[in-house]
Simulated scan of single mutants.
Amino acid sequence: MPELWLPGAEIHDLGDHAPTDQQYPPKAIAHITWDRNATAAAPQDWCSYEDLVNYFTGSGAGSAPHLVWDPFSGRTTQLFPADSRSKSLLSPTESPTRTNRAGRVVIQIEAVFFPYCRYQGRVYPRLVDTPCAGWDRIHAWIASWGVPDVWPMGRPAGFSGCRDEHAWETRGGWYAHADVPFNDHTDPGSWPDFTAGPGSPDSPPSQQHPVPPASPARYQVSINGLPYGYGARGYQVTAVGRALVARGFGSHYQSGPGPDWTDADTENYADYQGSLGYSGSAADGVPGEGSLNRLLGYLPGQRSVSVSHLVSAARSDPGAEQGHRTYGSEVAIVEQALVDEGLLEQQWADGSFGTRTVAAYAAWQRRCGYEAGAADGIPGQSSLHRLGAAQGFTVTD
């Protein structure tokens, strides 16, 4: 299955996921934010990407797309996973389809742009006049979801619509907002060309073979508040590297893995992505949320743990089904600390506070001077604070 989250996107998951209507073919919808009205005679300053992200994650969440795309820098924020509907289309009761859901996927992209915007002193009449930075990556990801490189109602070349209910219901591909039935917007006015490779209508997705990047990717993503990709640093980088080695994907390391993300981490992660069936830009070695969760079994979080959460996990996980995770991201922080203290084998740092973790924590308690029933493997305030001080995480009640 393709990545639910665009590799390289900044993730601001709005929740409120909802399935699409699978009887319709896959679609992508092209929008521009058009947040200001400007003309050739009276251009206006571009409205920043950050402003639009703040809008769609705040008061504008009720009309949020999947992707908010800055065509000048290539930065992209994703608000819904690919298999959920988003909310940027009108869907009145008289419409025969639920427009935001009318496809196996209905992926909506808002380019942060309005005609005759002024950016760094230059005026851009059309979206295609911008650098369209990051477009190839967005296009490849959408194509991986089976959206063909066709415009059933014509590639947008101006601000007019061509709404055809029959085409909308029966043909997959790319649609301008101006072409969606029962909508009244006329954007985007223009849209960048498709690149060669994924999404070609001449062959189905299962027969497409995008060419992987020629050199290691050097950008970062944020997942659950932590950075991944070239230059990222932290315990989560070490956790990924060790998990890759444990899975047999460590051939590019000359030393480590360690807390600094290097090209070797990228190359090893790309090998792992390839083993999952990803290709092209979806296998560039920078994690997506789905592949990271599959590698680790949890998503690492900020280095803070709750005593009550750890106690609950230590009492629940050993008697539950093998691999059961209660507060898995917090347990993983403690487990990694126990690994680094030499008390737990790396293979058992999996986010489940099972019997081996209980035994390792009991060994830590004994190291702290506790005996008998006070060294039962159930975390307490004092011992957990001491472990946090030794290994660099904070502890809350």
Rank of each mutant, 00 (worst) to 15 (best):
195 T>I: 12
111 A>D: 00
77 T>Y: 02
370 Y>G: 06
397 D>V: 04
335 E>G: 00
179 D>L: 03
93 T>L: 13
200 S>F: 08
86 S>A: 15
188 P>F: 05
377 G>Y: 03
379 P>G: 08
266 T>A: 03
362 A>G: 12
199 G>H: 12
329 S>A: 15
5 W>I: 03
227 P>V: 07
359 A>V: 12
65 P>S: 02
271 D>P: 06
114 F>L: 07
172 G>M: 09
14 L>G: 00
100 N>P: 01
50 E>T: 12
217 A>S: 11
292 L>C: 06
39 T>W: 11
190 S>R: 05
242 R>D: 09
147 V>K: 09
112 V>N: 10
26 P>S: 14
22 Q>I: 10
59 S>E: 13
376 D>F: 01
233 R>Q: 13
372 A>E: 12
386 R>H: 13
210 P>C: 10
25 P>T: 10
368 C>D: 12
250 G>W: 05
109 I>S: 11
202 D>F: 07
61 A>K: 09
320 A>C: 13
394 T>F: 00
182 F>Q: 02
254 Q>V: 13
89 L>A: 09
360 A>K: 01
214 A>H: 09
53 V>F: 02
271 D>W: 10
238 T>Q: 09
240 V>Q: 05
204 P>M: 08
396 T>A: 12
253 Y>I: 05
221 V>S: 05
235 Y>Q: 14
376 D>S: 03
308 S>Q: 13
336 Q>K: 03
93 T>D: 15
308 S>I: 03
126 R>V: 07
25 P>E: 12
109 I>L: 15
52 L>R: 11
288 G>P: 01
217 A>W: 06
141 W>G: 01
327 Y>K: 00
241 G>M: 06
90 L>W: 12
325 R>F: 12
101 R>H: 03
174 W>T: 05
106 V>M: 08
139 H>E: 11
361 Y>K: 09
385 H>D: 10
32 I>T: 10
90 L>K: 13
145 W>T: 00
168 W>N: 08
257 P>R: 05
5 W>Q: 00
325 R>Y: 12
138 I>E: 01
339 V>R: 04
119 Y>G: 02
30 A>W: 11
256 G>I: 01
147 V>T: 11
145 W>L: 13
278 Y>D: 11
287 P>Y: 09
152 P>I: 07
375 A>I: 12
34 W>V: 04
87 K>E: 04
208 Q>S: 08
317 D>N: 15
178 A>E: 10
183 N>D: 14
308 S>Y: 06
354 G>S: 09
313 A>M: 05
205 P>C: 06
275 S>R: 04
359 A>Q: 15
224 N>Y: 00
